[in-house]
């Protein structure tokens, strides 16, 4: 295969992987700590993307839009957490999965109501190309990759250096013990949920200029994001990072080999991994509740 194609393929895969990672990390944390499958994260992703579009139209600045998207996603997720999840954390996973799907579905309806059905374009904020080994690579994609790594280290620092982060890590192991020490776990839940929402919004904002913004965009990435979370092992942060980039590369390089593979290969990879290791790469067997 020719190097130029390969390089741009790898970069493309890394940037897609970055978006998947930003989306999946929140889901994974939510699952790890609260034992919920929060399909509504895909709504915050769409909210982030749409706000980016709207703010870009108003101000002409895409970065400002991304920032606004994150804020809006955080606010919406906070509202949803308050009104819905706070009542249902105790329920089983199936229950939260269906409820959060309802929220996602309703959100898609609301988006159609506000922004209409037509897909909207958002221009790439950085047009420059970077030469890597004689191949022109869009700088914006590299920026997206860098941002996702910064987020990874930010989360790592948060979880390992702050007391709240340590409590969240402890809660991922055993919520009851954390509660038994006298820590208000619902506060931890809220913090985690909002972090997840903001990161989903960031993913939507960054992704908006790489694709068309349309009401169904959440449903379109849903399957991929969940695949990332599952391959990595629900609740594992390291696993999520690894699997996001695996999936990104499988999508990107797979399509270089044979176009239809782009969509199918990752799912086949996932089935294979699950058949070998039913809990994903880094998933733990120990699950309470």
């Amino acid at each position: 295969m020719d190097t130029q194609l390969l390089i741009s393929g790898v970069i493309f895969g890394l940037s897609i992987g970055s978006i998947f990672f930003l989306l999946a990390i929140g889901l994974s944390l939510c699952f790890g700590l609260m034992r919920i499958i929060s399909l509504d994260q895909l709504l915050y992703y769409s909210v982030g993307a749409y706000l980016t579009y709207t703010i870009h139209v108003a101000t002409g600045n895409t970065w400002l839009g991304v920032l606004g998207g994150m804020v809006a996603a955080g606010l919406v997720s906070f509202g949803v957490e308050r009104f819905v999840f706070l009542r249902i954390y105790e329920r089983d996973i199936t229950f939260t999965m269906i409820t959060s799907f309802g929220i996602l579905f309703a959100g898609i309806g609301a988006i159609k109501y506000i922004w209409g059905l037509i897909p909207r374009p958002v221009p790439v904020p950085i047009d420059a190309q970077l030469q890597i080994l004689g191949t022109g690579v869009p700088l914006y994609r590299l920026v997206v990759i860098v941002i996702s790594f910064l987020v990874y280290f930010g989360i790592w620092l948060f979880l390992n250096r702050t007391i709240t982060g340590k409590a969240i890590r402890a809660g991922i192991e055993d919520v009851e013990h954390v509660e038994g020490l006298g820590i208000n776990v619902y506060k931890l839940f809220t913090i985690t949920f909002i972090i997840a929402g903001i990161l989903s919004g960031l993913a939507g904002g960054l992704h908006s200029s790489l694709i068309m913004v349309d009401p169904q965009m959440g449903l379109e990435v849903l399957a991929f994001v969940f695949m990332v979370v599952i391959i990595g092992g629900l609740g594992s942060i390291k696993g999520t990072l690894a699997s996001a980039f695996i999936v990104g590369q499988v999508v990107s390089l797979g399509s270089l080999v044979y176009a239809p593979l782009a969509q199918m290969a990752p799912f086949a990879t996932m089935l294979l991994i699950l058949l070998i290791k039913p809990t994903g790469l880094y998933g733990s067997k120990l699950l309470k509740r």
Partner: peptide
């Protein structure tokens, strides 16, 4: 079961934090 991913120090910190 103590928090296995946390050090002894961090385990105690959580007790103090609360």
């Amino acid at each position: 079961r103590v928090f296995s991913d946390l050090t002894v120090r961090e385990n105690l910190e959580l007790g103090s934090y609360a």
